[in-house]
């Protein structure tokens, strides 16, 4: 079985981002970039399936700038076998390469690589759209299992437990299919130094969006990006009694 894992270069989840003063986007200069956390979980899951003897090859693919090779190397250090970078200087966080365009690009890559399964993050933590996996499965006419917290492969189908509001739903999808990952699926390993070194020698192909005939001109224009109004916090109380009094009589949120 061949597994394709699309991944994305995003701002590290611990970074406090700032909107640019001209409102055109988020200031990404000198900000720590990482592998999108949900994608890291997707890579880990593929690697575990490979370690369990259920997968022969893991291909990671990303769309982004030259530097997005770093995230492919991170994925390969976790255990992916080879990487593909679709290189573009169009922004990938906001107002640039959109989920539908990503899905169209990935569809072309799927048609080239013919994986049996695509595992990918449910959303990227920059534009938070939560669309690409569902869109890719629609374009391919494949079944989808989103927000996975458990995956069991069984021949030509996958049984997937999904995190839905208020519970866990289990569905069975035919393969080839698409699974998107939620947080509880696994806890990604830290790549060891030898594996980081090994990853540097793995195959990494660089392709051009024109290879796929997909336009990265956005359909949705960003008019403005601003920081939400700051909370006026900083209020203090000096005792439990005062706290209860404020909650009852000032905020009126308890009775």
């Amino acid at each position: 079985m061949k597994i394709l894992v699309p991944v994305k270069r995003v701002v590290d989840y611990n970074v406090k981002v700032r909107a640019k003063s001209d409102g055109s986007g988020i200031d990404l200069a000198n900000v720590k970039m990482s592998l999108n956390p949900f994608d890291e979980i997707a890579v880990e899951e593929a690697v575990r399936l490979k370690e369990a003897g259920k997968c022969d090859e893991i291909i990671v693919v990303t769309i982004g700038p030259e530097k997005a090779q770093e995230q492919l190397r991170t994925a390969m250090a976790i255990g992916a076998d080879r990487g593909i970078l679709v290189k573009t200087d169009t922004p990938i966080d906001l107002g640039g390469v959109e989920p539908l365009a990503v899905a169209k690009t990935l569809k072309a890559i799927v048609e080239n690589e013919k994986p049996d399964l695509v595992i990918m993050g449910k959303q990227s933590i920059d534009d938070d759209s939560n669309q690409t996996g569902q869109m890719l499965s629609a374009l391919l006419g494949w079944a989808q299992a989103t927000f996975a917290s458990e995956i069991k492969l069984d021949g030509d189908s996958a049984t997937v437990t999904r995190e839905i509001d208020g519970g866990l739903e289990t569905i069975k999808i035919a393969l080839p299919g698409i699974i998107t990952t939620d947080l509880r699926l696994n806890e990604p390993r830290y790549a060891s130094l030898p594996n980081i070194m090994k990853a540097k020698k793995k195959q990494l192909d660089i392709m051009d969006p024109s290879d796929f005939g997909v336009s990265y001109d956005p359909k949705v224009k960003i008019l403005n990006v601003s920081e939400p109004p700051a909370r006026t916090g900083g209020g203090k109380v000096s005792s439990v009694d005062e706290l209860i009094d404020k909650l009852k009589n000032e905020a009126k949120v308890i009775s």
């Binding site: 981002v17 988020i26 933590i125 949705v220 224009k221 960003i222 920081e227 939400p228």
Partner: peptide, 11 residues
């Protein structure tokens, strides 16, 4: 966007 750290106005 960005986990609510920013608000984008989009057209």
């Amino acid at each position: 966007v960005y986990g609510g750290q920013a608000i984008a106005k989009v057209q």
